[in-house]
Design a protein around this nucleic acid. Sequence first.
DNA 1: CCGTATCCCAGTGGATACTG
DNA 2: CAGTATCCACTGGGATACGG
Lengths: 126, 126
Amino acid sequence: MVTKQFNGSLDEADLTRADSLAREIFSDIANKWALLIIESLGERTLRFSEVRAGIEGISHKMLTQNLRMLERNGLVDRTVHATVPPKVEYTLTESGQALRVTIDGMCDWTHTYLGHIEESRRRFDG
Amino acid sequence: MVTKQFNGSLDEADLTRADSLAREIFSDIANKWALLIIESLGERTLRFSEVRAGIEGISHKMLTQNLRMLERNGLVDRTVHATVPPKVEYTLTESGQALRVTIDGMCDWTHTYLGHIEESRRRFDG
DNA sequence: CCGTATCCCAGTGGATACTG
DNA sequence: CAGTATCCACTGGGATACGG
């Protein structure tokens, strides 16, 4: 980008691009299944079927779709073992681990405020 | 719950209930719009229309719906000023603030790994 | 076992209009 | 200005089947 040679910082077009990219990534990742998959993988390496078993209610399709998305964004590594039957393993990358830490925070939050939330719901619903 | 008097910990039924509740809360909150609303509110108090202006692409309906949900779960306070025209203000509660901290973490993460992600996508798509 | 493709329905969410 | 309701297009996501 030509304007960069005139100043060290990003120009407006770059900022816009970076923002919209950030927003796109956020939209990819800020969904229930993606977060649950990351949380479920944790520090382990799991097979497709094991991830599936660990997440109640996720369909085959949603799991595939989200794992692909996470792989594309570099959050999980996918290893195919050329055996019969095939065996495919998933594991979090460094960036995946980094995100997991923040998701752990969300989970902790949920448990910390469970009581508050239940009570708030009762008040609201009544 | 009767069994509680026999031991200090939660019985199985309670655990199941707490888990499914936690899961339900997680499903409520782990969606793009809810997270963006919380992040956008930050430490400020904003009117409905101001929140809307701050979040590109959110529809009137989605904003209302998510604000209601957040209010119900006790993450935002809603104050109606009985003026003409009406003025409704939203602000994060203590629990909302606590969750915001973890969402800030996700945003930081996004910006930290922006480069990694872009490159990973290029590799994947090619 | 894992992945992709196809079909199909239910529910999400946008647009619009009306109320307080 | 904010909320609710109605309508409807659309797609998200489940079920299923087949391929590697």
